[in-house]
Design a protein around this nucleic acid. Structure first.
Lengths: 338, 338
DNA sequence: GAAAATCAGGAAAAGGTTTTCTCGACCGAG
DNA sequence: CTCGGTCGAGAAAACCTTTTCCTGATTTTC
């Protein structure tokens, strides 16, 4: 780092003053012409605009922000390194934000509170108009901080403070959709293979399944099999069901990865899908669901929609219309062949 | 949208003027105290700092940027919707950027030139200090624009202009690593199953494999089997090899997804892995590689490293030390059980 | 034909920080 | 005792737009 810094890359950018000078008007007038404000002759307006275009003028939003106090910028803090869940949420959020001419800073919190608060400080220094916190699990999380000067929306992982604004998926509803699909396709004896009981999503989906079965007047097959979110556990759990000589014709899996393990396990045990057993997963993770044999029927939790909704609520809050509380986004069933 | 806008959320933030007033100094002095500039008594410096901490003062970076012309902000434009390749690149980039106290705007170009140039304009308006373009394929891409006022680095997908700064993976090197591993574990007759020939990465890897085999004095088994990047093609290609009664004891697959299809195909044909046939993939995509049976040995293209390097080169360019040309980042082998 | 209203555009402040310039006070030296 | 130098700190410009207020000119209205 001892080397001499090179030339400072002088690219004097054209400012509104250059436009004004060339168009023969004052900067104030030029500003009005470009932004459609004030009272100006059409001819003047057109002249300024054409000069601006000719010079390739791009307004300096930094100056504008300083004046207006708005940066048209939001921060997104993810906790899952832009993984499976953060990404679709991000994409949805970007959709809504772009509609409001806003743009997002992306920060990866990596589940580390220190990193997170460091990012938070950086975002506030840059005067973002609002912040979205995109979680990785559905378990409630500690709020970002109290008394923040900008609105915050929690996406996917709700804040543990019910007065914060959170947007979450409908976990029980997802289970209900899965069960109803299985029942509608003639399944009566349905088992549940899912992730660790320590995960709220696993618990909620199990509960939702029990409720949905009860509503249909059906009994579950055995207890929910809690394990890990892996294919290996899916295969293992199937073996367990078969060994226990459980009589089942449907399996609701807590995730697509799990479901893939389950389909492999069943197929390799000589059980034909979907003839003998129907399988439904959760996530609608294209890569996994489509590569499974047969392709998986699964519940899409609507992650993109969660992102979109979060951004919309954030924009509303920025405009002085906050919507505290937990907002639930429904999922939907994606029917493939399983 | 006709509703009355609510109260404008008045949270008068504490500015440096507040700190200065409470510390009994001028704003200029306060600024110097906080930034360690100028000549001040230690006592004064300490007093200002403690007052700033007490008041929770956070400098307004917008004002600072306006003055210095630096925003300590870069834009990242991805073309793959933050998919398989964009994400690790992003993460690596964020690593390096954070080290320089910088933060990234994320824009999803979605392979649409219109969207892309829209994002570009937004980024320039916000006066980013530089831009990283993260591609999805290794095929060269059209430059972002000419005569941009800020430095640009192309990550993964190089710019078609060789004078631009691009950071790419070592595709041939990856093939060489795979082949050498197979040979070192006793394989002599190696086949190649890969993606579409229209993809530069498929062609490069095939070429790299041919070179590596030649260097070892070996002949390839048949021609490279070009297809698609899917498990189904992997399984199908295996069946094709078996039907043609090709004698092979190793397969180099153009991707992990493909390799997973290949392992499934081989296993279901009664061939034991890795005893009879060794398989090596490319990507080191944890989810896929670890779920395969057996877990895949694969070449990691070093995507995070590409991201890190891109950001480093960008920071250097921002500081007036550009590094035009194509920079190749080596990959490395990740040995699992296949 | 004069007062009033409208029109078109200019001048200047504001926004929060950094940085340069300036200035008074104090020190030691001659 | 005065002069030059250093030290510590303040005043003000600068960054680039937007916006408010103002002014001269033109048009409208009795």
């Amino acid at each position: 780092m001892t080397e001499e810094p090179g030339p400072p890359a002088v690219v004097r950018r054209v400012g509104i003053a250059d436009v004004a000078a060339k168009a023969g008007v004052s900067v104030g007038t030029a500003s009005k012409a470009l932004n459609g404000r004030g009272r100006l002759r059409d001819e003047t307006r057109a002249r300024v605009r054409s000069v601006a275009a000719e010079l390739g003028f791009a307004p300096n939003n930094v100056a504008r922000s300083l004046l207006t106090g708005r940066t048209f910028t939001v921060g997104v803090i993810t906790t899952d390194s832009y993984g499976r869940f953060g990404i679709p949420v991000m994409r949805g959020a970007e959709d809504s934000l772009a509609a409001g001419e806003m743009i997002a800073f992306l920060c990866d919190g990596r589940d580390d509170p220190i990193r997170e608060s460091h990012h938070l400080r950086k975002l506030l220094e840059r005067r973002v108009d609002g912040i979205i916190v995109a979680g990785r699990r559905t378990d409630p999380r500690r709020p970002l901080g109290d008394d923040l000067p900008v609105p915050v929306v929690y996406a996917f992982a709700p804040s543990s403070d019910p007065d914060d604004c959170s947007v979450v998926s409908d976990e029980r509803g997802a289970a209900r959709l899965a069960v109803e699909h299985l029942v509608n396709t003639g399944r009566q004896r349905i088992a549940h293979i899912t992730g660790p009981e320590s995960h709220a999503s696993a618990r909620e989906r199990a509960t939702g399944m029990a409720e949905a079965l009860a509503a249909q007047g059906l009994e579950p097959v055995g207890h929910p099999l809690f394990g890990s979110w892996t294919e290996a556990w899916g295969r293992f759990a199937v073996a367990q069901l078969l060994r226990a000589k459980e009589d089942f014709d449907g399996v609701f899996c807590g995730s697509d990865v799990l479901a893939r393990g389950v389909t492999d396990g069943l197929r390799e045990a000589g059980i034909s899908l979907p003839t003998q057993v129907g399988v439904v997963g959760v996530d609608n993770w294209g890569l996994v669901a489509e590569a499974a044999r047969p392709p998986l029927t699964t519940v899409d939790l609507g992650l993109e929609e969660i992102g979109r909704r979060s951004a919309e609520l954030l924009l509303e809050a920025i405009n002085g219309r906050p919507s505290p509380g937990v907002h639930v986004v429904p999922g939907h069933l994606v029917v493939r062949e399983s």
